[in-house]
């Protein structure tokens, strides 16, 4: 059963500007699916969220969420969706508890009714219930925002880069929470700049210039990489990056944690040992290691659409 169905969707913010969202191919998100959206700044991710949450209307096309049309049925639709915008948008002058009570009352419910959905997050906020939301740290603001988004028990959850500025341990906790929410049957659409997070989604859409370039499961996207990828190290990593880019065998080279990832030109049959020998003999690198590297989602991202 599909939760979100888009046949075509277009939105521009000005006649002279290219459309922010221009989805020409249909796509759908299944009920209970965790659907990720990745793409560069300006790809249209936030506009797509705002369209699907009825905050802006499309110029052309339409979509349904849980069977409700995003234009015609916007009032009803707002009661069953939860939207956590990328920018902090709670009331900074209200306390933690006041914010939560307010959002619950707007949706005609109360904290107690849906406490089971937020309990494991809210228990961390309870010691600070009387603190003004504006005075919370970044990670706490994000936890409170999620609670306020969940308090009316939405059937579909839209999260726009929820973990920006959040440390690695808190990010992992956040994704454990998402997994639990998914288990309750909630449909979740989430955008992220972290590829390890995208890897945890059922399916991922790579968005650029308002369109989806690729939509598939992370495993299928990784499997389709189709290029020879190497991980290379030496004792001089910055010079290594520049030298690798000079080599005719190398199509692209980019930093990747403590190695550089190298995409070889198609038809280039250089074995890893060959590349290693050239780096040592022609470029004078020491401590060289070259190994074949299976593509990660981040590699796929780096190599899609230029």
């Amino acid at each position: 059963m599909d939760s979100i169905v888009v046949r075509r969707l277009k939105k521009s913010y000005g006649r002279t500007l290219p459309p922010a969202v221009d989805l020409q191919e249909p796509f759908s998100v299944r009920q209970g699916e965790l659907f990720g959206i990745i793409g560069p700044d300006g790809a249209g991710k936030t506009t797509l969220f705002r369209l699907l949450t009825t905050l802006v209307s499309p110029d052309e096309g339409t979509a349904t969420v849980e069977g409700l049309d995003i234009v015609r049925d916007y009032r009803q639709l707002r009661t069953i969706t939860g939207y956590m915008p990328g920018r902090f948008s709670l009331y900074p002058d209200l306390s933690v508890k006041e914010n939560l009570t307010f959002f619950a009352s707007v949706f005609g419910t109360d904290i107690k009714t849906n406490y089971h959905l937020i309990g494991d997050i809210y228990c961390r906020l309870e010691p600070f219930e009387d603190r003004k939301a504006g005075n919370l740290s970044g990670g706490m603001k994000q936890k409170l925002a999620l609670c306020c988004t969940l308090i009316h028990s939405p059937r579909v959850l839209f999260l726009d880069e929820p973990t920006t500025g959040v440390d690695p341990s808190s990010r992992r906790e956040f994704w454990e929470t998402l997994a639990r929410l998914k288990d309750t049957g909630m449909t979740i659409v989430v955008s992220t700049a972290y590829m390890d997070e995208a890897d945890r989604c059922d399916r991922v859409a790579m968005m650029k210039s308002g369109r989806f370039l690729v939509t598939d499961s992370p495993a299928a996207i990784r499997g389709d990489f189709g290029r020879q990828l190497l991980a290379v190290r030496s004792d001089e990593m910055f010079r290594l990056l520049q030298d690798l880019r000079k080599m005719p065998q190398v199509d692209r080279c980019y930093t990747f944690g403590d190695t550089h990832h190298v995409v070889l030109n198609d038809g280039c049959k250089s074995a890893p040992e060959g590349i290693g020998r050239i780096l040592e003999e022609e470029y004078g690198h020491k401590g060289v290691s070259v190994r074949v590297q299976p593509a990660t989602l981040e590699d796929c991202y780096m190599n899609v659409g230029g």
Binding site: I38, A193, Y301
Partner: peptide, 20 residues
Amino acid sequence: DEPTGGVDPAARRQFWELIY
């Protein structure tokens, strides 16, 4: 201070090359 927060993988790498 968190210069690359919320920045996509390709742009993050470009930014680090500026730092280098």
